[in-house]
């Protein structure tokens, strides 16, 4: 696979990436509490890895940042999320989700052609000029290293791509909307090691341009790419943020014994 090269177009975004503040954030599904009382400030332009065992609310936490939890009717959120100084509750859904892009665990391209997968969201967001759309598609596909592989078959169904290619297509789809924040929910866990490495390289190249939050179970990956690490754990059936700080310190010198126990497994 060719190593992706970033083109200058996508390096210039209109704004500096925002920092994200969460204050006393709790989420419940009906009676079941997913996570409670999370306070954290995620630094602008940095990569934060969310680690912890399965079922500790990492994914749910992520989905609150672009209010995707609202798709689940039983979900009830308490607390606030701020993008810079702006409460996300006050931002209408469409601009919020355009500003905060998301990549899922399982690659989820639409059952449309490769081209339409990128063009359809752009059109929906009011970009109708064909040459402009084509330009954005070429740029973002180049950014994710997919352009050379698919430029001759843009009309082919996106589902005919390999898993790794599909995930890069989904990343391109998110980047095409020029977000400032990227949420990634175990983006590599469904991929083979080689594709996983390509995605990891891509994420590193996005650092500084976007504020990135990534959920991962791969502690090696977290230590390779993350600036900060947030460690979640289940206490009394409720997900909690146990420790949060610079990646080096969390891995080298954890303050909480739970963190120490969990991260010590990373070399094993």
């Amino acid at each position: 696979m060719t190593s992706p090269t970033l083109s200058p177009q996508s390096l210039t975004t209109d704004h500096q990436p925002p920092s994200i503040w969460v204050k006393q954030l709790s989420l419940r599904y009906g009676r079941k509490v997913s996570f409670a009382n999370v306070d954290a400030q995620f630094r602008a332009g940095q990569i934060t890895a969310l680690i912890g065992p399965s079922g500790c609310g990492k994914t749910s936490f992520l989905s609150c940042l672009n209010r995707l939890h609202e798709l689940t009717p039983t979900a009830q959120l308490a607390g606030q999320v701020y993008l810079n100084d702006c409460d996300t509750e006050t931002i209408p859904l469409t601009p919020l989700r355009r500003q905060v892009g998301m990549l899922f665990q399982k690659p989820n391209p639409f059952p449309l052609s490769i081209y339409r997968n990128l063009a359809f969201p752009l059109k929906e967001h009011g970009i109708c000029d064909r040459t402009h759309i084509h330009h954005i598609i070429e740029t973002t596909l180049t950014d994710v290293g997919l352009w050379a592989e698919v430029k001759d078959r843009l009309k082919a169904p996106a589902l005919s791509l390999s898993g790794g290619q599909q995930q890069r297509l989904c990343l391109a789809r998110a980047l095409a909307l020029k977000p400032q924040v990227l949420l990634m929910d175990e983006p590599c866990s469904a991929l083979d090691p080689l594709s996983s490495e390509v995605i990891e390289d891509l994420i590193l190249r996005l650092k500084g341009i976007y504020t990135i939050l990534i959920v991962t179970h791969n502690l090696g990956q977290a230590s390779r790419i993350a600036d900060d690490v947030a460690f979640f754990w289940v206490q009394h059936d409720v997900g909690q943020l146990i420790e949060f700080g610079p990646a080096k310190e969390i891995f080298a010198n954890p303050q909480d014994p739970l963190t120490a126990a969990y991260t010590s497994g990373r070399r094993g």
Binding site: T94, N108, F110
Partner: peptide, 23 residues
């Protein structure tokens, strides 16, 4: 997954419906 992906991209429900779900 389609609805989730579409929602995460900030697409309108109507657009999602016409382009993805009805087909």
């Amino acid at each position: 997954e389609y609805r989730q992906a579409a929602a995460a991209l900030g697409l309108s429900r109507l657009g999602t419906l016409k382009t993805l779900i009805l087909p």
